[in-house]
Simulated scan of single mutants.
Amino acid sequence: MGRHDEILKGLQAWAGQFYGADATVERLVRLSGGASQETWSLDVERPGCVEELILRRVPGGVSVARNSEAIGLGTEANLLSCADGTVPAPKVIQVFEPGSDIGEAFLMNRIPGQTIARKILRDDDYRIAREKLTHQCGAALAAIHAIPTADLPDLPTSGGLDQLEKYETIYRAFNLPRPVFELAIAWLKSNVPSAVPPVLVHGDFRLGNLIVDSDGLAAVLDWELAHLGDPREDIAWLCVNSWRFGHSQNRVGGFGHLDNLLTTYEASGGRKFSSDEIDWWEILG
């Protein structure tokens, strides 16, 4: 029995228990997205109703030790539950523990929209969305950073200097000095920003991990790099030129301006930051 059939069998058994004996799992398809986890789309059909779902699953269904900052799928599902009602994000339907018929995984509702950055930044279908997206991202980031840390699962703590040390160690191990990196590392060490209280940091908030529909931000995805850290990290990561996808004139994700994002971020309950305070984190990014 192939992987598809094994997962289908396990999901069918779950659907019968969760929705009733007349529920059937249809159109189970592996999606191309998801660099570190499997992502599957499926529908659960029952009389008069279709539930559109997404399955996030550990590759092969079994966790293995990885040299990665990623949190486990169970922790990611827990975070989505913490965000429910305050951040636009999928709703977790079911968590499957390691050793289940499906393996380590969780199910969430499927949210319609687009994740491909170049389409979001170019296509006329998203013209109105692009006008709203900067403010929506500012509000979403403020909501993420406002989730009480006492409510969160156990997460790693990672500040700017922690990350700089990690990446400098990797860089030095290559023994291939490059002036641009030497200058950047020296500047970052000489201009460390004042610390702020740690908050929940999404860790990878950018186009590609956001679902956008014709009205703007529909959901924040891929929380697997979440940690406790500096809120400016999330803001700056969205500004890194790699995530502008050729639209470098717009500092925020290729679609907006940082002053507008920071204004909405503060109005939505976030700390007051100047654009200059984001520079250090963007250079680190």
Score class of each variant (00 low, 15 high):
D125N: 11
D125P: 08
A140T: 12
A129N: 11
Q163A: 10
E165H: 10
Q136A: 12
D125K: 09
Q163Y: 14
E165L: 01
D162Y: 09
I128K: 06
G138F: 09
T134F: 00
G160K: 09
Q136L: 08
D125A: 10
D154K: 04
Y126S: 05
I128A: 06
P148N: 00
G159P: 11
E165C: 09
I147Q: 04
A142G: 04
D162T: 11
A143R: 02
Y126P: 01
A142V: 13
T149Y: 11
I128W: 06
P156W: 09
A129I: 02
Y126A: 09
L164E: 04
S158C: 15
H135A: 07
G160V: 14
L133P: 07
D123C: 13
Y171V: 00
T169V: 03
D123G: 09
L141R: 08
E168W: 03
D123V: 04
S158F: 15
Q136S: 13
I147G: 02
C137N: 07
T157H: 15
Y126H: 12
D162H: 13
G138Q: 07
I147M: 03
E168S: 12
I144R: 08
K166S: 00
T149I: 14
R172I: 00
T169C: 07
P148A: 10
P148S: 08
P156N: 13
C137I: 06
G160Q: 09
A129L: 05
L133D: 06
T149H: 14
A129F: 01
P153S: 05
I170W: 05
D162I: 13
D123L: 02
R127M: 05
Q136G: 12
E165D: 10
G138L: 10
A150E: 02
L164V: 01
T134L: 00
A142W: 02
A173L: 03
H145A: 10
A143D: 01
A150M: 11
D124I: 06
T157G: 14
D124F: 02
P156G: 09
E168K: 02
Q163W: 15
I170H: 09
D124C: 08
R127Q: 04
F174S: 07
A129K: 02
Y126N: 11
L152V: 07
T157N: 14
A150V: 11
D162V: 15
P148L: 05
D151T: 12
D154P: 03
R172A: 12
R130A: 08
L133N: 01
R172C: 07
D124A: 12
